[in-house]
Computed example of a mutant assay.
Amino acid sequence: MDRVTKLASQRAVVIFSMSSCCMCHTVTRLFRELGVNPTVVELDEDPRGKEMEKALARLLGRSPAVPAVFIGGRLAGSTDKVMSLHLSGNLVPLLRNAGALWV
């Protein structure tokens, strides 16, 4: 859990992902299209990925645990939560407050 927390707090937007997950790619693309350069941690390419995946599953209360999006060091959620924030108009202000967007 410490590694997840540390990585999540190092940048404005951190996405824990799996390289073969289509929803992970979708969420990452959404952020990039909004002008955000997220840090993407590919759990299947990290030596401690399984450990982090278990920690994320506990945080999210579900498995699979990806994508798991952190904004400003706080867990924003998975695909459904991120899309809900975006559609309600709350994602961009959240990104601005975290310093991920300047516009």
Rank of each mutant, 00 (worst) to 15 (best):
C24P: 06
A68P: 09
P47Q: 06
G61N: 07
Q10E: 15
S20A: 09
A65D: 12
I71T: 13
E51R: 02
I71H: 09
D2A: 13
S17G: 03
C21R: 02
D80C: 09
K50D: 14
R29G: 15
T5V: 15
A12I: 07
A98N: 05
R96A: 01
K50L: 09
N37K: 15
K81Y: 12
V4C: 03
L85P: 06
L101E: 01
S88P: 03
S63Q: 10
V103A: 14
A12F: 12
G35R: 10
D46N: 12
G77Y: 10
I15H: 04
H25E: 03
R74A: 15
R96T: 04
S17R: 01
R32C: 13
G72I: 05
W102S: 14
E53M: 02
V40R: 00
D44Y: 01
M52A: 07
D46S: 05
H86L: 08
W102L: 14
L95Q: 01
L56D: 05
T5L: 15
L85N: 05
C21K: 01
L34C: 07
E45N: 11
R29A: 07
T26P: 01
A76H: 06
R11A: 14
V40P: 00
G77Q: 11
L43P: 00
M1W: 10
R11S: 15
S78N: 08
V66E: 03
S17E: 00
T28C: 05
R58E: 14
G77D: 11
R32F: 08
H86Y: 15
E45W: 04
A76N: 10
R32D: 04
G89D: 01
R32G: 08
R11G: 07
T39P: 07
L34K: 08
P67M: 10
R3I: 07
L101F: 06
Q10I: 02
M52H: 04
C22W: 10
L43K: 03
M83T: 04
R29Q: 13
A55N: 09
V69G: 06
A100C: 00
L60H: 04
A55R: 03
V36L: 09
S19Q: 00
S19C: 00
M1E: 11
A68T: 11
V4S: 02
L87I: 11
S9W: 10
A8K: 11
V40Y: 00
M83Q: 12
L7Q: 07
R29V: 02
V36F: 13
A76V: 09
R96V: 09
P67I: 05
D80L: 14
D44C: 11
